[in-house]
Simulated assay, not measured.
Amino acid sequence: MAQRANPKHKWILCLDDDVLLHPTTLNDLVAAAEADPTSFMVTGYPFDVPEAGASLLTYCCLVYHLPLVIAFSVRQRTSFVWGGCMLLPLADLRSDANGIMHSWSQGGYSDDLTVASVCSERGLQILCPSFAIFPQW
Rank of each mutant, 00 (worst) to 15 (best):
A35R: 08
D28L: 12
P7S: 12
L68K: 08
C60N: 04
L20Y: 15
S95D: 13
T38M: 09
V74P: 03
L66C: 01
L127C: 10
T114S: 10
L62C: 03
P67Y: 00
C85P: 06
G83W: 00
L68D: 15
V81D: 09
T114W: 11
V42R: 03
R4E: 14
R4D: 14
N6S: 04
A31E: 12
D92M: 08
W11F: 08
L57M: 02
E34T: 12
L113K: 07
F80G: 03
G44Y: 00
G83L: 05
G108E: 13
Q76M: 00
A97W: 01
P7A: 14
D112Y: 05
V81N: 04
I126Q: 08
W137G: 01
T78K: 01
L113P: 01
R94I: 05
M1E: 15
P46N: 10
D111A: 07
C119E: 14
G99W: 02
L20M: 14
H9S: 11
V115I: 15
D18E: 08
V69L: 09
A54Q: 10
A97V: 04
T114E: 05
C85S: 01
A2F: 11
M1L: 14
S39F: 08
C61Q: 02
L124C: 02
S79A: 06
D111H: 11
M1C: 14
I100K: 03
S39D: 06
P129G: 08
P89S: 04
V30F: 12
L93T: 11
S79Q: 11
L13Q: 06
C60P: 00
L68W: 15
D16Y: 07
C85T: 07
D36M: 14
L20A: 13
G108L: 11
G84T: 12
F47R: 15
V19T: 15
D96H: 00
I12G: 04
N98L: 02
F134Q: 02
P46M: 09
E121G: 03
A35C: 10
M1A: 14
Q136K: 12
E121F: 09
D16G: 15
V81K: 00
A5R: 01
G108T: 14
F72Q: 06
L21A: 02
G107V: 15
I12M: 10
W137R: 10
S117C: 07
S110P: 00
P50L: 12
S110E: 13
T58W: 06
V63N: 01
R122Y: 12
G83A: 06
L124M: 05
A116I: 15
A32P: 08
S39L: 03
L57G: 02
F72R: 10
T114K: 14
F131L: 09
P135W: 14
Q125F: 05
P37C: 05
H65Y: 00
L93K: 01
H9G: 05
L88R: 00
T114I: 15
A132N: 08
M41L: 06
N6A: 03
V115P: 15
